[in-house]
Design a protein around this nucleic acid. Sequence first.
DNA 1: GTCTATAATTCGATAGAC
DNA 2: GTCTATCGAATTATAGAC
Lengths: 194, 194
Amino acid sequence: MTSSTRSTQPRRRSDATRAAILRAARERFAADGYERATIRAIAADAQIDPSMVMRYYGSKEGLFAAAAEFDLRLPDLTSVPPARLGEVLVKHFLARWEGDETLVALLRAASTNPGAAERMRGIFADQLTGAVATFGADPTLTARRAGLVASQILGLAFTRYIVRLPPMVDTTPDELVSWVAPTLQRYLTGTPPS
Amino acid sequence: MTSSTRSTQPRRRSDATRAAILRAARERFAADGYERATIRAIAADAQIDPSMVMRYYGSKEGLFAAAAEFDLRLPDLTSVPPARLGEVLVKHFLARWEGDETLVALLRAASTNPGAAERMRGIFADQLTGAVATFGADPTLTARRAGLVASQILGLAFTRYIVRLPPMVDTTPDELVSWVAPTLQRYLTGTPPS
DNA sequence: GTCTATAATTCGATAGAC
DNA sequence: GTCTATCGAATTATAGAC
């Protein structure tokens, strides 16, 4: 029962097609948002028939849910020098986004699609809050610290990838890290104001 | 030629209707985004016929352009104590938004509508950069400082009004000001990193 | 100025042949 | 598994009566 022929392998022709659909869907959702991205256009990009999209993913919502699966892949913050938490986080986020348009798709869709907004809340409320909680002292402040971090991180993504403000687009990732890291550092470990 | 009868007064029945349309349009665009907000729904809210919207504003794009007119109404920053610039700015933005949903409409639409994104760029690149330039020392840094401020300000609005992250929704404006003011202060007047 | 009627598209989704 | 054909609904926009 070592290997090749079949039986335990459900993957055949369809897996390549499914992957092509997801890739095209991410592109379109990222570029056009949820409403303007049509199943027909996605299917054309993937060079398959539109009805295949429905067959594989049931509906447009189902397709989006599959295409916008996103994991922040946050590193273990307990092994990071406490004074460098902000820097590590900004670097991580920028690197994570520059190579994967899934978050842009999610960001654009979250503006108009309730399901996408809900997923965004889940990602930043669960994954990020969880990471912040691993080292935070005061549990009652953890959620707020995570929310503030999310506000700066998502504002960075929004101005750089969605609105495309020229100064935010032209600035290199390293320069952005230098400016933004102290902000996150204070949100994460700073003394609560008054 | 003092007063009432007519001649120099083009406003008659239509002005109230136009205002009602704009109000309903801002509500719908803010709540649903550009694509999902339909002319029919806006007309129903304003209790007028859908064709009147077309007659007055020509097209859906034209209606949005009229409804999403937005002025930051930035105060004169030269009369603000330099050490309190961040605080004054956050306070101003929060107050400006809590009572006017136009920015939320613009924010939501900017994700999918190129024209709305262009307007957003104009607002933050012109109005904000102009205000920052009035006191900034190094002109080459002015655009970048304004962009960074925009990133935190728009991230605040995005997480609080669009995605509605619970910790950002539950926090009072005063508490938000306390946390965010130092960030803007550093973006505006801080020493450039390395 | 206001409304009815409808044109012209476009979309998501379905049925069914092969 | 894949594709053709099409349904039914919704949209912006227009033409024209009153």
